[in-house]
């Protein structure tokens, strides 16, 4: 997997509060160019908030989030967001746009020529394994959950952003489709080498996709490391997640 020691995204002493309630506390994290970092945690542990701090849908209460060594506060928010692909659960597709319009959204915001957008949409549909002739004119409600997810990923990749944020993109899928998409993601990642921040509550998914895994617990980043490092961790939250994994394997 292509990866360098260059830092793409950095959290420095970041905390985030809503109505004086701490959501994230004193967070420090460097994400390297080309790696896939998976944020693993229960619901409410603060992992989605971390994504939103990166594309400035949330603004840190204290501390600094920087992209390419520049604080997100100093970026033009719109330009920043257009450099960052954003894929969320399938509800994020625009129901009144067809597949081609959904995927072509950021390129058209960037005022690409129509022919170039069209070519890009076809290329991406092929990339995510959807037949362009069949799917380009369909609307989201005419797609299966897995197909919507593929469109969501294609849309996030449309303007070829160096950074990709994915918020439980495969969460609502059946296990077979999910595995298929996870494999395809790995294949894509090998080809494209994006910096990916991937949020999930599924430890298997984390192990399968992550270069490194960040374990979140009640707003703190409690473990950060590879799969093996996480397996060795004595932190109670890490043990709890690994216990799930074991229970699952024994049951199966």
């Amino acid at each position: 997997m292509p990866q360098s020691s260059e830092i793409a995204v950095e959290f420095r002493d970041v905390s985030f509060e809503i109505d004086r309630r701490k959501i994230l506390a004193d967070l420090n994290l460097s994400i390297y160019r080309g790696e896939t970092i998976v944020l693993l945690g229960r619901s409410g542990s603060g992992k989605t908030t971390m994504l939103k701090l990166i594309n400035r849908l949330a603004i840190p209460t204290t501390g600094v989030v920087s992209i390419d060594d520049r604080s997100t506060a100093d970026w033009d928010t719109i330009k920043l967001r257009r450099r960052i692909g954003y894929a969320i659960q399938d509800i994020g597709l625009f129901p009144h746009f067809n597949v081609s319009e959904n995927i072509g959204l950021v390129p058209s915001l960037e005022r690409w020529q129509t022919s170039r957008i069209e070519a890009r949409v076809y290329e991406l549909l092929n990339l995510v394994g959807l037949e362009p002739e069949v799917f380009a004119r369909r609307y989201p409600h005419q797609l299966s959950g897995g197909q919507r997810q593929r469109v969501g990923v294609a849309r996030a990749l449309a303007a070829d952003p160096p950074i990709l944020l994915m918020d439980e993109p495969f969460g609502a899928l059946d296990p077979i489709t999910r595995l298929e998409l996870q494999r395809q993601f790995l294949y894509l990642q090998q080809q494209l080498g994006k910096t990916v921040v991937f949020v999930t509550h599924d430890i298997q998914e984390a192990f399968l996709l992550g270069t490194r895994i960040g374990l979140m617990n009640e707003g703190n980043l409690v473990v950060l490391g590879t799969k093996d490092e996480l397996l060795q961790s004595q932190h109670s939250e890490a043990r709890a997640f690994i216990a799930c994994l074991n229970a699952w394997e024994m049951g199966g």
Binding site: N55, I78, G92, F94, L109
Partner: peptide
């Protein structure tokens, strides 16, 4: 309009005006 939809739009770098005219008003 579903917050997930507007947030997706905002997250992809739509300006408030674009979000309003292309997403919120049509929906």
């Amino acid at each position: 309009v579903d917050r997930a939809i507007t947030e997706a739009g905002r997250g992809m770098g739509m300006t408030d005006w674009q979000l309003l005219t292309q997403v919120e008003i049509p929906l």
